[in-house]
Design a protein around this nucleic acid. Structure first.
Length: 193
DNA sequence: CGTACGATCTGCT
DNA sequence: GCAGATCGTACGA
């Protein structure tokens, strides 16, 4: 069951970031299906958030994706070589997004290993936004895709992550955001599910 | 048009 | 622990 559109349209992107923990991210490419349980997320809270690409209501070719209605992907190239995968939330013209930073393999591990040039699973395989994109086959063509489609989508598991298993910290790699770099917008699953 | 820099990862020291 | 890889985007001239 794909997550319904209402999940993404909620106003509080920080809450959505937390709720995304334990959800399952799927990609389907050339007949290969891969899936991972989301274990780390970060919220980017739009025009007032100095860490966001949309800070100050910046509307550019790149950020335009975030201004669309929630429930789509936002993928961009970082450091010239990593495709970072985000989920757009909230209504149209409110550029909120959640960065997916880590997953735990759930299906299609063999394909993920191939894409990562690895022989077997190890705990460093999917623990970073660039790594999971490479493993899942996510690239620029995944930008602005509907999460109700059949290329990339999210599903719910029967059990949610209990709150006591969630660690909340400041975001990674956003020192340039000054005081906003300290906001508690990063969510990490502590133990295995 | 030129340039500075990143929501990162890897390999080498 | 640190530098190098590597290029689209943003912004000022």
């Amino acid at each position: 069951m794909k997550l319904p559109i209402d999940f993404y349209l909620r106003q509080d992107v920080v809450q959505v970031a937390q709720d995304l923990l334990g959800k399952v991210l799927y990609t389907h490419i050339h007949g290969k299906t891969c899936a991972g349980i989301i274990t780390e997320t970060e919220a980017y809270a739009g025009i007032t958030d100095k860490a966001s690409h949309a800070y100050g209501n910046r509307r550019t070719t790149r950020t335009e994706t975030m201004y669309q209605q929630g429930g789509i992907s936002y993928v961009y190239l970082c450091y010239g070589m990593h495709h970072l995968f985000n989920i757009v939330t909230n209504q149209q013209d409110i550029p909120h997004a959640v960065l997916i930073r880590a997953i735990q393999p759930y299906a299609g591990l063999d394909t993920m290993l191939q894409r990562r040039n690895a022989k077997q699973y190890h705990h460093q395989l999917l623990n970073g936004p660039g790594k999971l994109s490479m493993a899942m086959g996510i690239n620029q063509t995944f930008n602005a895709q509907s999460l109700q489609g059949n290329q990339v989508w999210l599903e719910s598991k029967s059990i949610d992550v209990p709150e006591e298993c969630i660690e909340i910290t400041p975001r990674i790699g956003v020192d340039y955001a000054k005081e906003d770099a300290l906001l508690p917008y990063r969510f990490v699953v502590k133990a295995k599910l």
